[in-house]
Amino acid sequence: MFERIAPEQHDTLPDIPEPAENPILVGHDSARSMLAGAYRAGKLHHALLLAGPRGIGKATLAFHLALHLFTHPDHAMAPDNLDATDLGTQAFRLLAQGAHPGLLHLTRPYSERDKKFRTVITVDEIRRVNRFLSMTASDGGYRVVIVDPADDMNTSAANALLKNLEEPPPRTLFILIAHSFGRLLPTIRSRCQTIKLQPLGAEGLEELLHRLGMELPTGEEERRLLIERSGGSVRSAVLLTQFGGLEIAATVEKILGGRTLDVAESFRLAEATVGRDRQVQFDLFNRIALDRTADAAAQAAEDGQVEQAARLALLWEELAADTREVEVFNLDRKQHVMGTMQRLHAALGNLR
């Protein structure tokens, strides 16, 4: 039975390991080999940007690389591939617990006053980097800073990090995780070696879900839909199977497929995705709505409907902004869900 030892994060899922404590890394073989080889050759870039969709293993790869550096402080003696994680080592336990002296993990901080995680990585979090780097590593090894995800930084935080990236101390590695590459400052992107990671294939996704103990649909069609809608993201697959995501997605499609907006069905959808202990379902709804809008925009562009594609792209931006405002200002979530469905139905009506 899984027992969590890592600190809880803003996006922690029950019974699913945090990247810091996850010994399982599936896929990304070329990136893993390249990073291990660069380290062994003494040519590892001081700032890495791991970019790709959410939930494909970017942060897990970052922690595996950090553990590799801590386990092999002499790069010339390091193996030419990332080691299989040994759960019994002190380095792994310290890393998993967020207590390794060589690692600083920056993510959305928890607000004791508000009793919830903040919606951004603040400049106060980034200021911790200077204090961390002012301390000498106890064994003369690497110090690793992981920013997870970097696209959660507000402008002040991003500018503060930029100063650290410009002149890092020796034997310092920055690893930035990015779900939305384009949201990062161009000046930050230019100072990093970008490694674009691809979504997991169907085989890799099923293997990882199996190793995590997740139950997959038994029916062939249901399994196909899960793999298709997951988009190569194990996080999306877990959400779809364990938190009602498949049902939410089916309801959204049913409403959008009607010639007129089904207000009663939209109300039932809102009831199912808001309220106490429904944060995951609310996040799922917003993700599904944004993905549906993005897919429609991409299809319109492919069909040569330039104006329609532009309108849908603008709608995506507006819906994303609305979602952030609901979280920041604690607005009415039920009204948000119903309003989103109304806007989507109207925007996609001429595509049916």
Rank of each mutant, 00 (worst) to 15 (best):
H45E: 05
D86A: 07
F181P: 00
T323F: 04
L319F: 07
G349I: 01
R32K: 14
H46K: 09
R143D: 02
G57L: 11
K196H: 07
V328K: 14
P170W: 08
L50G: 04
R189Q: 13
G37F: 00
C192T: 13
A237M: 09
L165Y: 07
Q97P: 00
Q279E: 13
R32G: 02
E206M: 07
R276C: 00
H72P: 06
M135Q: 14
T12L: 02
A301W: 11
T12E: 02
N330K: 12
A78V: 03
E167N: 10
T194L: 01
L348F: 11
D148T: 05
E302Q: 15
E125W: 06
L48N: 12
T136K: 15
G42P: 11
E247D: 14
L319G: 08
V147L: 12
F181S: 05
D262Y: 06
F174G: 07
L185R: 09
D114H: 09
I5L: 06
H210T: 14
P199D: 10
S266R: 13
L200S: 03
R127N: 10
L133M: 08
L106E: 12
D86F: 03
L226W: 13
E253C: 02
D151K: 13
I177L: 10
G57N: 12
P186G: 05
D152Y: 08
G204C: 01
K115I: 00
I195R: 10
R324P: 00
L25Q: 11
A309G: 14
K115P: 01
G258H: 08
Y39M: 05
K334L: 00
F243L: 04
D152M: 02
A301V: 00
A47N: 10
A296T: 11
A51Q: 03
E247W: 06
L216W: 06
A297P: 08
D277R: 15
Q9A: 05
L87T: 15
A84V: 09
A264C: 00
V238P: 10
K196P: 00
P14R: 14
T340Y: 04
D15M: 04
P79D: 07
P169V: 05
G201Q: 12
L256W: 07
D83E: 15
R229D: 09
L312V: 09
T71C: 00
S236V: 04
E247A: 12
D86E: 12
M153E: 07
L200D: 02
N154Q: 09
L212W: 14
D322V: 01
T260E: 14
L13A: 06
I24N: 12
D80R: 15
P186T: 08
P53W: 06
E247S: 14
L331N: 04
P23A: 05
F285G: 03
E21C: 06
F92V: 01
T340A: 02
A157G: 09
S138M: 07
V238N: 14
L95W: 05
L87G: 15
P19S: 04
E221L: 04
A264E: 13
R352G: 04
R333M: 01
D332H: 10
A62S: 13
E228F: 04
A270E: 08
T85D: 02
T85Y: 01
G244S: 13
D15S: 09
P53C: 01
L162C: 04
P168S: 08
Q242R: 15
R32C: 02
A41P: 05
G55C: 03
A137S: 15
D86M: 03
E215S: 13
H179E: 08
L165P: 06
Q9V: 00
L13I: 08
A296F: 07
R278I: 00
L200Q: 13
